[in-house]
Structures are given as C-alpha cells and as structure tokens.
Computed example of a mutant assay.
Amino acid sequence: ALKRFAESLRAVHSNDYDYGAERIVAEEHRVQHHRQVFVSSVWEAEHPVVHVHPQTGERALLLGHFFKHLVGFSSRESARIFELLQNRAIQLENTVRWQWQQGDVVIWDNRSTQHYAVNDYGNQPRVVRRVTVEGEPAVAVDGSRSRTVSRPQPAGQQVA
C-alpha cells in the first residue's frame, strides 16, 4: 500500500536548501561559497517521488536534500510523508558507507542512488568534484515526466 501511495506522489525539488543545517560545524566561508556558486540561480523542478530507471526498469525513490514539498499537500504533511519515505531510503541495509583511501574515486548513478555525506571528517579537508551528465528527465510509473517549475530569469529581466 505504501509503494502504491508513493508512486502516485510528485514533489517539488530545488537547489536552494540550507547547506549548513545538519552540519555540526558549518564554516561561514564554506556556506558563503555554496551560496555564491550553487544557489546564485535558483531552480525548481517537479519530479515523481518514484521514478523508473531508464536502463534497468527498476523503481527508485527520488528524494533527498533538494526536496521542498509534495504537490497537493501542506508543508507539514509533506514533511511527515517525506520523513517516512526518506527513512526507508536511508536504512542501513539500503546504504553503502565508503571507507576512503588516498586516490579513491567513487561514482554513483543518481538515477538510482542518493548521496549523503556523513560529516565525520573533523577538520580534514573534503574535496568534492560533482559532474552531472545530461540525460532524460525522470519518468514516473505512470509515464509522466519531471518538469521545470521555475527557472532563473536572465540578468536584467523582471519576473512578471
């Protein structure tokens, strides 16, 4: 029943999220860099909560830190449903914890996984180079696709 319910849901995601909210120590210069680079242009998209992987046909939850709210639900209801589903995704048996060694490179497919860095590296430097490969929008079980909800306006243009 929960799977069928989740398959019927759509969620709005945005790149504008609180980068330092869950960090024990969020250095101001890193938070400022995040704002300048990552959210200088704010995007929102509507995605199916459950999408079908284009190569494998397997179904996966499309959640994570970019989640804002569920379409058709209040922010409070959205938060509770998100918590229920997100807790399924992050159960230990559904996760991989990488034991980093010098020279390691790790690649994952965001169409079927969710990246979550555990902030347990103290004052050691952490360098991430993120690459996004262009592809098709996520497709729901019913065949509907993700869609852009809002996009940044070019410099000098006003939003009507």
Rank of each mutant, 00 (worst) to 15 (best):
T132Y: 08
G156E: 03
P137N: 06
S144A: 05
V106K: 06
H34L: 07
D104C: 08
L70P: 06
S146Y: 01
F67L: 07
N110G: 05
G103N: 07
A140T: 04
P48Y: 01
R35Y: 01
R35N: 05
R23C: 05
T148D: 08
L61Y: 12
V118H: 06
G72L: 14
G57A: 10
S8T: 11
A140Y: 10
Q124T: 08
N123H: 15
E77K: 12
E93L: 03
Y19L: 11
Q91K: 10
R35G: 00
H29M: 02
A45I: 01
A60T: 15
A79P: 00
V42I: 13
G57L: 06
V133W: 11
F73W: 03
L70V: 12
D120K: 09
R35H: 01
T95M: 15
D142E: 11
A155G: 02
S8V: 00
V128N: 09
Q99G: 01
D18F: 09
R35L: 01
Q91N: 09
W108I: 09
Y17H: 14
R147H: 05
F38V: 00
S41C: 00
V49P: 00
Q86C: 08
V106M: 13
V105W: 12
R130F: 14
G122I: 00
V39C: 07
W43P: 00
H34A: 12
R145M: 12
F82G: 04
W100E: 15
S150I: 06
T113F: 14
R35T: 01
R30A: 13
E93W: 02
Q157V: 14
W98C: 02
E44N: 01
V52Q: 05
R130L: 04
G20S: 10
E83V: 01
S146R: 00
S40H: 07
